[in-house]
């Protein structure tokens, strides 16, 4: 079970339902949608696909099937890794 966590300390701000993440070491700016920002906030502690999926299902309780949310999370985490915002925890 792969674990993930934020790579370093970032500056972040929420603006009109979007999250703006500033990486002050690599000078990158990343914009996330609201649900992405929620996942990002949770990633200041170690998370897995399963724990993030569970958190989203609790937050948006009545609307979604677990498998779809899990696929969304997997895709999102791979994007965050590609952007250099999170890392695998050994």
């Amino acid at each position: 079970m792969t674990q993930y966590i934020q790579k370093a300390k970032f500056e972040k701000t929420e603006l009109d339902g979007e999250w703006i993440i500033l990486n002050t070491e690599d000078f990158t700016v990343t914009k996330l949608n609201e649900v992405g920002g929620l996942c990002w906030a949770l990633l200041n502690e170690i998370q897995t696909v399963e724990t993030l999926t569970q958190s989203l299902l609790e937050k948006f309780s009545s609307q979604n099937n677990m498998e779809q949310v899990k696929r969304d999370i997997e895709e999102f985490l791979s994007q965050l890794v590609h952007c250099g915002l999170i890392q695998h925890v050994d």
Binding site: E18, D26, F27, T28, V29, T30, K31, L32, N33, E34, V35, G36, L38, C39, L56, K59, F60, Q63, N64, V69, D72, I73, E75, F76, Q79, L80, C83
Partner: peptide, 18 residues
């Protein structure tokens, strides 16, 4: 709250001009 898939909307590197 309405669920939508978590997404990276944009990602860019800041270019500093000397």
């Amino acid at each position: 709250k309405i669920y939508s898939p978590p997404m990276v909307l944009s990602h860019q590197t800041i270019q500093f001009e000397t």
